[in-house]
Design a protein around this nucleic acid. Sequence first.
DNA 1: TCCTATGTTGTCAT
DNA 2: AATGACAACATAGG
Length: 271
Amino acid sequence: MGLQLVKNIDMPELPEVENYRIYLEDTSMNRLITGIEIVDQRLIKVPEDVLQNELINKSFVSSRRIGKYLFISTSGTQILVVHFGLTGNLEFYKDVEDRPKYAQVLFHFNDGFTLAYLSRRKFGWIDLANDIENFRKTKKLGRDATEIAFEEFYEPIKKSKAPIKSKLLDQKYFAGIGNWIADEILYQSKLHPKSMAYRLTKQDFKLLFEKMQHILAVALQHHAVFEEFPEYFLIHNRKDGGTCYHTGDDLVRIEVGGRGSYVSPEWQEKK
DNA sequence: TCCTATGTTGTCAT
DNA sequence: AATGACAACATAGG
């Protein structure tokens, strides 16, 4: 039996997208696609007839995730590229009355089952690609954050004059870090998100890299169910009124690079 | 009514 | 050319 997806997890960062990938693998592979239903045309980056022509009478055969992007290889020549934006999910079902709310693109299989791509806020999208590596380079998408070595983390961002948090969030250096994970990395590294990258030492970057790997490993291990994360994780308290696990101080919400950020001011040093 | 939301992309200024 | 700041995108919920 496959992973039972927790419903309505709307936080598609690297670990959550890995959940969707496993769910896809457990439900939807090697079934003949007989119809594709598109509810809102704006969510697909190719014309509807192209999507139909390339995928109907084909099947999904394998999947790969890079950062927050899901690539689904098919028995045809095209690879389906799926991004969840700020909200999204996949849901596999059979009965019409089980059709999920916010379904935007539906792949109907010949055995009566359907895989639905959900997008509540419609910031996600679906595209086609010929080749994953080519797509990755064209779209300036970095390698997956779980696969990079320290030098690949450190070299591209060490001299940047932007806040370190903005660099962690930039998908072109390494891919998969989103807003809560960036806050988590900085909290566990005891560094303030507004610290300029170029002011950090190599030791700071080593710490950031280790914490990034640790946080991703924990989140993947627990299938992104944060209630199961260790209690020293910021995410348990990352909300208005939350307090720092280490100091007991109130967490402060600030804005960094246009993104809401939670900080424990005494705990996290601004450099 | 106003504000926020876990992401990406295009535009503009430096 | 490259970098960084910021608005825009669409919708729901507090």
